[in-house]
Design a protein around this nucleic acid. Structure first.
Length: 436
DNA sequence: TCTACTTACACTTTTGAACAGG
DNA sequence: ACCTGTTCAAAAGTGTAAGTAG
């Protein structure tokens, strides 16, 4: 594992999380170098944590070639084997909402990206086991290109259509509970439902920046410190789930995906067949408008609600079929909240902690929840609203291999990055390599 | 003309403040 | 004073459709 101090001896040891130096990085527009703040994160805690990361006394092994993902989205015939790159023996990750992801994946998952940022649906929600209950970990999520192609919807399926756009600055989403103890992470599934995707290369909010009409793969990284503020970091694990591959779009191309989203996403309930915003109702509204004001018929089309409580998309990101009886109240979901935030890739996070700055300052601050004692009288956050999915046979539980050399070797293969260091506190793009 | 993107819209869900009661 | 639960309004998150740009 390389550490910035090793890669850039001139930097010294004074890594701190902090605001970027104005004009520190000339590579990207000012908006990208503006300071992000992670209101949900105790940055001083992170700073302490990250400053302890130190180069491991071994060199990198050759990168194992990654298995190719399916060349085109569509019905999966033989999904590639799950993959995990890590040095956290015994740690395994399972995709909680795997069934939902597979449903989308079978059609060809599309994710809307907007200038303001759009949440992912389904969201990545994972369960982790095998952590040291006492040790502290960070959970990170980033999204990387699957291949070097741009895609085009051909009426029935996606087809490669030319070369991909140049790679955008990598950003990583840090789960707001980070850093938290292993016990905390294992207590309930970890949801990344507040991750937002944008196509705005000047995005000032820290959302993950993607190109439209490109295929991407979310990755989840787990970083451990033996002790908070220790001088040694305890290893990392990097996971990806092939079924979470998606194509980014500015408008849905495949009507089947639209149907699936409407059916599964509680925020889109209004577009269901019996919703007030269904096509029939919209047409009726247009007619009423043309005719002039008319008494509004309440509940004309029904709310589309299935019996039971409100769907909690914030809690679970995707909770279709969840048991409304067990759904926690929105208030209870707050411990799972995660504001949009970002920065360079997860690897960059390890290598250049100084390059991480936080998320939008307009978002409300909250107390990190890892210190909160669980309330036995209330349903655990997440769990009640989550689909009760068991890992498939040999499927979604990703067991850590004991002796994988280092964090994301496919990324840092080749030694130190030929990257300009923007100075302490500056925003740094890692220019990471795609996964192919 | 075609394709991709942006924006406004109506709707639903989430969130947090204010309040009441114990 | 503190805790818990309820109510309500504002904010945020949806897909759609019309308009715009290249």
């Amino acid at each position: 594992m390389y550490h910035p101090r090793e890669l850039y001896p001139s930097l010294g040891t004074g890594y701190r999380l902090g605001h970027p130096q104005p004009g520190a990085d000339s590579t990207f527009p000012p908006a990208l170098t503006e300071g992000y703040r992670y209101p949900d994160l105790d940055t001083s805690k992170l700073d302490c944590f990250l400053s302890g990361i130190e180069a491991a006394p071994h060199t990198l092994a050759a990168a194992a070639p990654l298995p190719l993902l399916p060349s085109a989205l569509g019905p999966e015939t033989a999904p590639p084997p799950p993959e995990a790159l890590h040095s956290l023996p015994g740690v395994s990750l399972s995709l909680e909402n795997q069934e939902l992801w597979k449903e989308f994946s079978a059609v060809g998952t599309e994710m809307i990206i907007t200038k303001a940022g759009r949440r992912m649906f389904p969201a990545c929600r994972v369960s982790v086991t095998g952590l040291d209950p006492e040790a502290r970990y960070l959970f990170l999520l980033d999204v990387v290109p699957v291949d070097g192609a741009r895609y085009r919807w051909q009426g029935q399926h996606w087809e490669p259509s030319g070369k991909a756009e140049p790679r955008l600055p990598d950003r990583v989403y840090i789960h707001p509970d980070s850093p938290a103890t292993g016990a905390h992470w294992m207590r309930q599934p970890v949801s990344f439902h507040r991750v937002k995707l944008t196509n705005s290369t000047l995005d000032p909010h820290g959302h993950l920046i993607l190109h439209s009409m490109h295929k991407y793969q979310p990755r989840i990284h787990l970083v451990r410190a033996t002790q908070l503020c220790s001088q040694h970091w305890g290893g990392v694990a990097s996971f990806r789930f092939p079924e979470t591959t998606f194509i980014s779009v500015t408008a849905y191309q495949n009507p089947r995906i639209t149907q699936l989203k409407i059916a599964a996403n509680p925020f889109a309930k209004g577009f269901r067949e019996n919703g007030r915003n269904c096509k029939r109702e919209r047409d009726a509204r247009v007619k009423r408008k043309l005719r002039g004001p008319e008494p509004v018929a309440t509940e004309a089309c029904g709310s589309g609600d299935t019996p039971g409580g409100p769907c909690d998309s914030t809690l679970g990101g995707d909770i279709r079929d969840s048991d409304p009886e067990q759904a926690p109240t929105p208030r209870e979901a707050t411990s799972a909240s995660a504001p949009p935030c970002g920065g360079p890739s997860a690897e960059a996070y390890l290598l250049h902690p100084a390059a991480f700055h936080g998320a939008p300052s307009h978002l409300p601050a909250r107390t990190p929840s890892f210190a909160e004692a669980p309330d036995p009288g209330r349903p655990a956050p997440y769990s009640a609203a989550f689909l009760d999915l068991q890992p498939g046979p040999g499927g979604s539980a990703y067991q850590a291999a004991p002796s994988v050399p280092s964090f994301a070797p496919h990324f840092i293969q080749g030694g130190p990055f030929p990257l300009p260091y923007p100075g302490p506190g500056g925003y740094l793009d890692m220019g990471s390599k795609p996964m192919y």
